[in-house]
Design a protein around this nucleic acid. Structure first.
Length: 952
RNA sequence: GCGGGCGUGGCGGAACUGGCAGACGCGCGGGCCUUAGGAGCCCGUUCCGGAAGGAGUGAGGGUUCGAGUCCCUCCGCCCGCACCA
C-alpha cells in the first residue's frame, strides 16, 4: 500500500513526493477501492440477514446517522450538494473512532415527476434513466470518500422496496383511529367492537341489522387510508391532483407552477388529521431547530375555540371562533360566498347583488384575492341572525375574506376585537360596539384619551382587558380581565344553554394520497363490482408497475379547469382487469390505477436502512429496537428514532410531517418501538455562489465572467452580479470534478467543512479552496520528505510546549467534532500543524495524533499517512486520541490586567495562585501602576484564570 | 401583517456560562527561492496615526468593575406563513 507512483506534476521542479493534486487523487482512488474490498464501513446488525451479533457486542454504543433521502438527478452533482453528506460522513467517522457502531448509508428516492417528465421528453422508460442516474450518483458520492455501508443502499423504485411501501399502506388501510385510546388499531378490532355492541354504529342500529354494504360503509368511513369524494387540488397542467402541501399560496403547483383548481374527485386520503394533536405534542420530545418546530406547529395550526350557533331564517348558522368571550360584541356575521346557506338567506331584494358577488368571487383565482390591497369587499344577504348572548338581530353578509376551507366557512364579526372585522365594519358602516376597556397604554400609544366610543379608535383592540357591556341574565363577564377566563366562562354558558360547544380547529387537512401518474408505487388495492376497495393479501405483493410504452400521463391546457385526470395505468386494461380469489372464490376485480405520491417512499426509508435485505418483514423488530429504540438512558421521555438527521429546511413541513405520521401509525400497531422517526434534526445551510445576468436579465455562465476594475464582463459585455443558491438554473454550478482535478477530494471535503458552521449558508469561492490544500501539503511535508518520500518523523518525545499544544488541540477538537462544529476543529488542527512546522523535526507521537484527528475530515490522506507511519490496516476503527488532563493545565497563567476596562498590562502568575496574590501582582506591575497614576484602586476584580480589572 | 433567524476587518468566518474582539482560511503587502512564477516557503495585515496613543462588533440608549454576548428603541437583510376567524 505504501509505494506510490510519484506525483506526475506538470513538467517543472515540483518535488516528486509533494502532496500534489495528482498524488492526492491516486491516494484517494486507491483507498476507496481498499475500503470497498475490505467492507470497512459495514455496520453489523443484531438480527436478520445482516446479523453479526458478536460484532455488535464487540462494538460500543450504536449510532444512526442519516442524510435526507436524495432524488437521483441526472444533472450530476455540484459542490453545493454534498455539504451535508460530508458533514455526516465526518461525524460518522469520528464516532466510529469513538468506538461506536455507526449505521450510515444512502439510498435513492427515485420515483416522481422529474424522472417521468424526462422519460416523456426522451421516450426512454423512466426505469432506465432512473437506474442510470442512481449509478452515476453512487459513483459521484463514492469519489468523495463517504463511508456508507454499501449493503444498505436502497431505491424506492426497487420492487423489493416498494413491496413494503405497499405493505405499510395496507397496514394503514386496515386500521382506524380510536379517539378514546388516542391510537390506531386494526380494523378487525373495530369490527369486533361493533359486533359485540361495545361500540355503537353511527345511526344506533344493531350491527347485525346492517346489510353487508352498510357494514362496509361504516368500516370504510373509519379507515386511516380511505377513498373520498371531496374537493381536491386538480392541476390540469400536470395532469394529476396534488396535496394541499404542494400548492403554493398563490394557488399554483409547487412543481411546474401551473394553476390548481378545487374540484370534487374520488381520491385516496390519509387521515393524518387524527394524529394532529400527537404530531403537535410530540414536537416537544424532539431535538429539532426552533424554526422547523414552529413551521410544523403553524402547519398543524391548532386553534382552540368554540362553535357557536346563530339562529337564522335558514336554520342555525354555525361559526367557529377562537374568541367566544367576545360574543357580546358580535354585531354582524359574514359567510364565505360559497357557503351553502347563502342561497336560502338571500332575500329577493339582494338576490342580484349576491349572485353577482358570488360569481365574481368564484371567478377570482386565489392569486387575485391577494393582489388587491386587502380592501374588504362584501355584500349583505338581507337576512339577520340572532346573537345568542344578546338576543339581538344582526345582519348577515357574505365576503371573500371568509374562506370556505377553514372553520365552518362562517364567522361572527366582532369589529372591536378583530382587525379584519373592524376594517369591514368601517368600510360598510356597520356598528362597532365596545366590549372591552383597552388599557390606558393602548390609548396613549394612539394619542387618544381613553374612550369606549369606537368611532375614535384607529384599529381593533386585541388582547386582555376588562370586559364591558358583556352581560345578560345568566352570563356576566363585566369586570373579568383575562381572555382565558372569559373564554372559559362563555364556553360553559354556551354548552349549558345549547348554543354551542368548545371545539378545536386545525389548519391541517387530510393528506391527498393518490396521483394520476405512472412513475410511482401502484396501490395494492382492487375494486369489486360495487366499487368497494379491497386490500390485496400479502402474498400478492408487490403489485409491480406494468411495463408499457405509454407512461406519459395525459396533461391538459393548464387553465382547462373542467378537464378530467386520466391515469396512465387506467389505459392498461390488460393489467387493470384481473380475476382474483380474495377468499370467496375467483371473482373479477379492477385494480386501482392511481399511484402513490413521491412522499410515500420517503415516509419510512430510514426503517428499511436498518434491515434492507429482509424479505420476511419490513424491518426485524430487534434491529429496529437496537438502532432506533427510545434512549431512555439519555432521557426518560426520549422518543427513539434516528440519532442525527441532516438535511435542508425545504422539507420542514411535507416530508417530515408525513414521515412522522406513518411512523406513529406503525408505532401504534406495534411494528416499531420508537414514537418518532427522527430524534435529532440538524438543518445544514446551502452553498451560495455569485451569478451573473446580462442586460436582458438572462443568466450567463458564471465561470466565463471576468472581473475587471470592479466591473463584471461576459464576452466583453457588462453583466450584473447577483447572488443565489448554486445550481444549474443560475449557471453558477461548480463541479466537484474540477476540484478533484486541482486539489483532490480531501481538500474539497476540508474546504467545505472549514468555510463556516454546517448550519449556515455561505458563498462558494473557488479561489479560497487553495488554503486547505496548502494545509494538507504542510501536514504531508511534516511527515514525508518531498524529495525522497522518506518519513521525516523522529522517535524523540515532543518538547513540553508541543505536548501541551497537542493535548489542548485534542481536547478542543473532540468537543467541536461532537458538536458538529467542524470549522473550528479544523482551525485548531491547522494551528497545531503550524506549530509542528516550526519544529526541527516532527515527533512521531505528534504525527500519529494529528493523523488520527484528521482521519474523519480527510480520510484518504490520513489513511495514507497512517500507513507510512508504520501502522497496518485502516484508521477507521482506531481510537480517537484522548487528551491527558495533566497537559491541559499550565503551571503559570498570563493574566491581562485592565484598568477601568482597558487592557494596560500583563502579569504571569502561578496557575494555582489565589486571588489575593494575583491582585498583588497586578498592582505591582509597572504598566498598571503607570495607568492608574498611582491612585489607590477603588476596587479590584479578579476572575480566576481569566483576567484582572482594576477600577480607579 | 404575524412568526423564526441574523447584522463582527476587503471576503468566508472565530470569540465557552458577560471577561484579552478579529482564531483559522482567502485576499492583500513585503521578502525568499527562481530564467520566470498564476507553484512553494517565511514575515506582516481591524481602522486612524510615523509613533505614543486613540477608535472599533448595523444605529442610539440602558444594566455592569467589564457588553459582540444581557435589556429597551430604531434601521437593514434572510427564511417561513399569509385575510386561519
Amino acid at each position: 500500500m505504501t509505494q506510490t507512483t510519484s506525483s506526475a506534476a506538470p513538467a517543472d521542479d515540483t518535488p516528486p513526493f509533494r502532496y500534489s493534486a495528482t498524488l492526492a487523487q491516486e491516494i484517494e482512488l486507491r483507498w476507496q477501492d481498499w475500503w470497498d474490498d475490505h467492507g470497512t464501513f459495514e455496520a453489523p446488525n443484531p438480527a436478520g440477514p445482516l446479523a453479526d451479533p458478536d460484532a455488535v457486542a464487540a462494538r460500543g454504543d450504536k449510532l444512526f446517522v442519516l442524510d435526507m433521502f436524495p432524488y437521483p438527478s441526472g444533472a450530476g452533482l455540484h459542490v453545493g450538494h454534498p455539504l451535508g453528506y460530508i458533514g455526516t460522513d465526518v461525524y460518522s467517522r469520528y464516532q466510529r473512532m469513538r468506538g461506536r457502531n455507526v449505521l450510515y448509508t444512502m439510498g435513492f428516492d427515485a420515483f416522481g415527476l422529474p424522472a417521468e417528465q424526462y422519460a416523456v421528453q426522451t421516450g426512454q422508460h423512466p426505469a432506465v434513466t432512473t437506474n442510470e442516474n442512481i449509478a452515476t450518483m453512487r459513483r459521484q458520492l463514492r469519489r468523495l470518500g463517504l463511508s456508507h455501508d454499501p449493503r444498505r443502499s436502497i431505491s424506492t423504485t426497487d420492487p423489493a422496496y416498494y413491496r413494503w411501501t405497499q405493505w405499510i399502506f395496507l397496514q394503514i388501510f386496515e386500521s382506524w383511529y380510536d379517539a378514546d385510546q388516542q391510537r390506531a388499531r386494526p380494523i378487525a378490532e373495530l369490527v369486533a367492537e361493533l359486533e359485540s355492541g361495545v361500540r355503537p354504529t353511527p345511526d344506533g342500529r344493531r350491527w347485525s341489522d346492517l346489510d353487508d354494504g352498510e357494514r362496509r360503509d361504516v368500516i370504510d368511513a373509519q379507515r386511516l387510508a380511505y377513498v373520498s369524494d371531496a374537493p381536491v387540488n386538480w392541476c390540469p397542467g400536470l395532469g394529476t391532483v396534488v396535496a394541499n402541501e404542494e400548492v403554493t399560496a398563490d394557488g399554483r403547483s409547487d412543481r411546474g407552477n401551473f394553476p390548481v383548481f378545487k374540484r370534487n374527485m374520488r381520491q385516496w386520503m390519509m387521515r393524518i388529521t387524527a394524529y394532529a394533536d400527537r404530531l403537535l405534542d410530540d414536537l416537544e420530545l424532539l431535538d429539532w431547530s426552533d424554526a422547523i418546530v414552529t413551521m410544523q406547529r403553524n402547519w398543524i395550526g391548532k386553534s382552540p375555540g368554540a362553535e357557536v350557533r346563530f339562529d337564522s331564517p335558514a336554520g342555525p348558522i354555525t361559526v367557529f371562533t377562537t374568541r367566544p368571550d367576545t360574543l357580546f360584541g358580535a354585531s354582524f356575521m359574514v359567510l364565505a360566498p360559497e357557503h351553502p346557506l347563502v342561497e336560502v338567506l338571500t332575500t329577493a331584494e339582494h338576490a342580484d347583488t349576491v349572485a353577482d358577488y358570488r360569481r365574481r368571487a368564484a371567478a377570482k383565482k386565489d392569486v387575485d384575492r391577494q393582489d388587491d390591497t386587502r380592501e374588504k369587499t362584501g355584500v349583505p344577504t338581507g337576512s339577520t341572525a340572532t346573537n345568542p348572548v344578546t338576543g339581538e338581530q344582526i345582519p348577515v353578509w357574505i365576503a371573500d375574506y371568509v374562506l370556505m376551507g377553514y372553520g365552518t366557512g362562517a364567522i361572527m364579526a366582532v369589529p372591536c376585537g378583530d382587525q379584519r372585522d373592524f376594517e369591514f365594519a368601517r368600510r360598510f358602516d356597520l356598528p362597532i360596539p365596545a366590549i372591552q376597556r383597552p388599557p390606558d397604554a393602548w390609548f396613549e400609544q394612539h394619542g387618544l384619551e381613553p374612550t369606549l366610543d369606537t368611532d375614535a379608535w384607529p384599529e381593533a383592540y386585541v388582547g386582555d382587558a376588562p370586559y364591558v357591556n358583556s352581560a345578560n341574565a345568566t352570563l356576566d363577564l363585566n369586570g373579568v380581565a383575562s381572555v382565558a377566563e372569559g373564554v372559559q366562562r362563555t364556553n360553559e354558558w354556551l354548552e349549558a344553554h345549547g348554543h354551542g360547544t368548545a371545539t378545536i380547529t386545525y389548519k391541517l387537512r387530510d393528506w391527498l394520497f393518490s396521483r394520476q401518474r405512472y412513475w410511482g408505487e401502484p396501490f395494492p388495492i382492487v375494486y369489486d363490482e360495487h366499487g368497494r376497495p379491497h386490500g390485496l393479501p400479502d402474498h400478492q405483493l408487490p403489485v409491480e408497475l406494468p411495463e408499457t410504452d405509454s407512461f406519459s400521463p395525459r396533461t391538459f391546457d393548464p387553465d382547462d379547469e373542467h378537464s378530467d385526470p386520466e391515469s396512465p395505468l387506467d389505459r392498461l386494461s390488460g393489467w387493470a382487469d384481473v380475476e382474483l380469489d380474495l377468499g370467496d372464490g375467483p371473482r373479477r376485480y379492477r385494480r386501482d390505477t392511481n399511484v402513490m405520491p413521491q412522499w410515500a417512499g420517503s415516509c419510512w426509508y430510514e426503517l428499511r436502512y436498518l434491515d434492507p435485505t429482509n424479505d420476511q418483514c419490513f424491518v426485524d423488530p430487534e434491529n429496529e429496537r437496537y438502532w432506533m429504540g427510545p434512549r431512555t438512558d439519555e432521557r426518560p421521555d426520549h422518543p427513539g428514532g434516528v440519532d442525527l438527521y441532516v438535511g435542508g429546511v425545504e422539507h420542514a413541513v411535507l416530508h417530515l410531517l408525513y414521515a412522522r405520521f406513518w411512523h406513529k401509525v406503525l408505532y401504534d400497531l406495534g411494528h416499531v418501538s420508537s414514537k418518532e422517526p427522527f430524534a435529532r434534526l440538524f438543518n445544514q445551510g446551502y452553498i451560495l455562489a455569485d451569478a451573473y445576468t446580462d442586460e436582458r436579465g438572462v443568466y450567463v455562465e458564471a465561470a466565463e465572467v471576468e472581473a475587471r476594475d470592479g466591473e463584471f464582463l461576459h464576452d466583453g459585455r457588462p453583466v450584473t452580479r447577483e447572488w443565489g443558491k448554486m445550481g444549474k438554473s443560475l449557471k453558477n454550478a461548480v463541479s466537484p470534478d474540477e476540484m478533484y482535478e486541482q486539489y483532490g477530494a480531501d481538500t474539497l471535503r476540508l474546504y467545505e467543512m472549514a468555510m463556516g458552521p454546517l448550519d449556515a449558508s455561505r458563498p462558494w469561492d473557488s479561489r479560497d479552496v487553495v488554503g486547505m490544500y496548502r494545509f494538507l501539503q504542510r501536514l504531508w511535508r511534516n511527515i514525508v520528505d518531498e524529495q525522497t518520500g522518506a518519513l521525516v518523523v523522529v522517535d524523540t518525545p515532543p518538547d513540553d510546549a508541543t505536548r501541551r499544544a497537542m493535548h489542548r488541540t485534542i481536547d478542543v477538537v473532540a468537543t467541536e467534532m461532537e458538536a458538529l462544529r467542524f470549522n473550528t476543529a479544523i482551525a485548531r488542527l491547522i494551528e497545531l500543524n503550524n506549530h509542528v512546522t516550526k519544529l526541527d523535526a516532527t515527533p512521531r507521537e505528534v504525527a500519529d495524533t494529528m493523523v488520527l484527528m484528521l482521519g474523519p475530515l480527510v480520510p484518504h490522506v490520513a489513511e495514507e499517512l497512517w500507513r507510512r507511519l508504520g501502522h497496518t490496516g485502516t484508521i477507521t476503527h482506531e481510537a480517537f486520541p484522548i487528551a491527558d488532563p495533566a497537559f491541559l493545565v499550565d503551571d503559570t497563567v498570563e493574566y491581562p490586567v485592565q484598568v477601568n476596562g482597558k487592557v494596560r498590562g500583563r502579569i504571569t502568575v502561578a496557575a494555582d495562585a489565589d486571588p489575593a496574590t494575583v491582585e498583588a501582582a497586578a498592582l505591582a506591575d509597572d504598566k498598571v501602576a503607570a495607568a492608574t497614576g498611582g491612585a489607590p484602586p477603588k476596587k479590584v476584580i479578579v476572575v480566576p484564570g481569566r483576567m484582572v480589572n482594576v477600577v480607579v
